[in-house]
């Protein structure tokens, strides 16, 4: 079994509800344990409000919480670092470099008034002391890596000139340009149509193999997770309900909630209607 890259231990993240009198503390994440091993594709599945996004964002300190407790261990150059105990300055060396993010809505996740090329260049230059020219070269390389057809045009465009699928590819390029060890993908295909979703998922899967990347994939779609993951964690209301391990090519679910989640995507137990394809 390969080594653990990311280990989340007993994570508890709470927020302050200022609307009530007196203000209450609400735990969005309550005692979550999660491990991502080197090279694995791990999915974190749950409904909205289950705390899955908060868990993922807390890894790199992207959440403005009231209280965060627990430990998040990340293996960097044979050293184990507790990300929760790091200062902002130290965290900046990990965030965007060793651990990269892609988010759900690529349209709003890209700065509308800065060119795509510039947004890529700055990511690289934030972590590597190199010339602008080299950064531009590298950006163009990565636009190719994510299989964008007209690289030069995309490089010069502004986000609103690209389609949703292309924007997400750009996000992936931006995430991979600093050669991270872990990619955290927060529902990257939820805002995309089915065909584009399939393309993006296949892209992520292939890049993972090519670049020896580990992936932490957040989604509400259990069937999607089943198709791509080595390991699945199921969350509900801030708690970890079940951990699914792949044995002999399939996952065995024990909890009723997990079964409900999966069956919710299947509308016909015995498919009486089928989609036939004319020859």
């Amino acid at each position: 079994m390969s080594e653990a890259l990311l280990e989340i231990k007993n994570l508890r993240v709470s927020f302050l509800d200022k609307g009530s009198l007196p203000s209450r503390e609400i735990a969005a994440v309550d005692g979550v344990n999660l491990t991502v091993r080197q090279g694995d594709f791990v999915s974190l599945v749950g409904q909205s409000g289950s705390g899955k996004s908060v868990t993922a964002l807390t890894v790199c300190g992207l959440v403005n919480s009231f209280k965060t407790e627990g430990k998040i261990f990340f293996t960097l150059k044979d050293r184990e670092l507790d990300l929760l105990k790091m200062s902002e300055k130290e965290l900046l060396k990990v965030r965007g470099k060793e651990i990269s993010y892609i988010f759900q809505d690529p349209a709003s996740s890209l700065n509308p008034v800065i060119q795509i090329g510039e947004q890529l260049d700055e990511t690289y230059l934030a972590h590597f002391d190199d010339t602008k020219k080299n950064a531009e070269k590298r950006s163009r390389e990565f636009l190719q890596v994510v299989k964008i057809a007209d690289v030069e045009r995309a490089y010069r465009s502004f986000p609103h000139e690209l389609s949703g699928g292309m924007k997400q590819r750009v996000m992936i390029a931006m995430a991979l340009i600093s050669a991270p060890r872990l990619l955290v993908a927060d529902e990257p295909t939820t805002a995309l149509d089915v065909l584009t979703e399939s393309e993006i998922m296949k892209l992520i899967a292939s890049l993972r193999v090519e670049r020896r990347l580990s992936v932490l994939f957040i989604t509400h779609n259990l069937s999607l997770a089943v198709s791509f993951s080595d390991h699945i964690y199921v969350m509900e209301k801030g708690r970890l309900i079940e951990e699914l391990v792949k044995e002999a090519g399939s996952f065995k679910a024990r909890e009723a909630y997990t079964k409900r989640l999966f069956n919710a995507g299947v509308y016909d137990q015995k498919p009486k209607t089928q989609l036939l394809f004319a020859r």
Partner: peptide, 25 residues
């Protein structure tokens, strides 16, 4: 906005996030 979150997630310094990304908009 989300793109500010992206800028932070990319590891840009807080100054760059606020002034290059935020102020421009």
């Amino acid at each position: 906005q989300n793109y500010i979150r992206t800028a932070r997630a990319k590891g840009l310094s807080e100054k760059e996030v606020l002034y290059k990304h935020g102020l421009k908009n």
